[in-house]
Simulated assay, not measured.
Amino acid sequence: MYETYYKLAGKPFQLNPDPAFFFGSRGHKRAMAYLEYGLHQNEGFIVITGEIGAGKTTLVRSLMQKLDSSKVVAAQLVSTQIDADDILRLVAAAFGVPSKNLDKADLLLAIETFLVSLTAAGKRALLVVDEAQNLTPRAVEELRMLSNFQLEDHALLQSFLIGQPEFRDIMQSAEMQQLRQRVIASYHLGPLDVEETKAYIEHRLKHVGWHHDSPSFSADAFEAIYRTTGGIPRRINTLCDRLLLAGFLGEKLALTAKDVNEVSVEMKEEQRIGRNASPARLISAGRPTQRASGEVNALPELAKLVSDPRMAEQIATLAENFDASRVEFRLGQLEQTVSALLQMLNGAVTTQSIEDPDKDKASQ
């Protein structure tokens, strides 16, 4: 939308992690060095932690792009509350090892056979587990057991565990003692400082053909962006994307701290309204309530929560023509329909055995 106005070849502040935009801050360079050191060691675990949006996934994807596929076979998992029963099947699926209908013993044998075949072919296996803080202790223990696979004195599998800050606390628990002994390096990826924030923004803009005057940023604009985002790359992306959109809508080529602050306030207001105007709350607010005086229309109260004057006016108009009995009747019909559907679903669940669909996906 604003790309044409600012003569950019693409969107500079997309939220999707893209290794093409990798920015080597001091922290990111150090984290990359730890990962590369781990690859050189070819054993054990490397642990990288960082705040949400700190750039961990982009870091890993940038590393994966550098790997020589003729020498390293890499697989990546994004964990979502994975327990021990599922982790092995997901590892097998990530490496393309057939696992359907295999019990645990046969599954372990299949994974080990695959890893041995890679080593025999002069290749190495690397497993990258993102969002590692979601793993259960039993799942982490299964990963540790996989690290025991060896051919003579060569480890068959190396693992990188990437997680949010709480994973550091998890690692310090008594249950993780054996895993800690296998960790050869760990690093916590912190936020950018104010100078790095400026360099990060310019780096992403230059990647899409930016010229410094379209748009231009004042020195205080960079400082305001840093203060607002705390130097977290994803937050910087979100704010700068909205800033360029606001600049386009306002036909501005020069952006200042005033523009940054206005966009920041606008985004905070949207978040506040979003919290107050969740679907459940909106339905509850719009639904007539019983009070001592009888039916009460709550839509005027809802109008007060909306900052956009046009939307508030529309809600107020709706409130004037509000028919409480009609709305109550329609909501009652909806509740009856949902209740009937739930009863049908509950009946279906009790009359047949349903397999876990996630297990089927992991085994395919």
Rank of each mutant, 00 (worst) to 15 (best):
96 G>R: 05
138 R>F: 10
139 A>G: 09
103 D>P: 02
139 A>T: 06
105 A>Y: 12
109 L>Q: 13
131 E>L: 10
121 A>W: 02
143 L>C: 01
119 T>F: 12
146 L>C: 06
104 K>G: 11
130 D>Y: 02
120 A>Y: 05
102 L>A: 08
112 E>W: 00
99 S>E: 11
131 E>P: 07
140 V>L: 14
145 M>I: 10
130 D>C: 01
102 L>C: 04
145 M>A: 04
129 V>W: 06
103 D>T: 08
106 D>M: 13
122 G>M: 03
115 L>G: 02
130 D>S: 12
132 A>G: 12
126 L>I: 08
117 S>V: 03
120 A>V: 15
107 L>S: 03
143 L>R: 11
96 G>W: 03
146 L>K: 02
142 E>G: 09
141 E>I: 11
97 V>F: 08
124 R>P: 05
138 R>N: 13
97 V>C: 03
132 A>E: 05
138 R>K: 14
118 L>Q: 15
146 L>Q: 00
100 K>R: 15
119 T>V: 05
136 T>G: 04
105 A>V: 15
117 S>A: 15
127 L>V: 08
106 D>K: 14
116 V>H: 10
146 L>G: 07
142 E>F: 00
128 V>Q: 08
98 P>L: 11
123 K>D: 02
102 L>N: 05
135 L>Q: 02
139 A>K: 06
109 L>H: 09
106 D>T: 11
113 T>F: 11
122 G>H: 00
115 L>P: 07
115 L>C: 09
116 V>M: 13
99 S>D: 08
131 E>M: 09
121 A>H: 06
104 K>M: 12
102 L>Q: 03
134 N>F: 05
126 L>Q: 11
121 A>P: 08
128 V>F: 02
110 A>H: 12
98 P>H: 08
115 L>D: 06
133 Q>V: 02
135 L>Y: 01
136 T>Q: 03
115 L>Y: 01
105 A>T: 14
129 V>I: 15
112 E>R: 13
117 S>L: 06
124 R>F: 01
127 L>R: 10
114 F>Q: 03
140 V>N: 09
111 I>L: 12
127 L>A: 10
109 L>I: 10
116 V>Q: 14
96 G>Q: 07
106 D>L: 15
118 L>T: 05
122 G>R: 01
103 D>M: 02
96 G>K: 04
105 A>D: 11
118 L>S: 04
104 K>V: 14
123 K>M: 09
118 L>E: 14
101 N>E: 12
111 I>R: 04
110 A>Q: 06
142 E>T: 00
100 K>S: 03
119 T>C: 13
108 L>H: 12
138 R>L: 13
122 G>A: 04
124 R>G: 04
144 R>A: 02
142 E>N: 08
113 T>M: 10
140 V>H: 07
126 L>Y: 08
98 P>D: 10
143 L>A: 06
113 T>S: 15
128 V>K: 09
126 L>C: 09
129 V>M: 01
115 L>M: 11
102 L>G: 06
133 Q>T: 08
108 L>E: 14
115 L>K: 00
109 L>G: 13
100 K>T: 02
100 K>L: 11
120 A>M: 15
125 A>L: 11
138 R>H: 13
146 L>S: 05
133 Q>C: 08
116 V>G: 01
123 K>A: 07
107 L>R: 11
125 A>S: 05
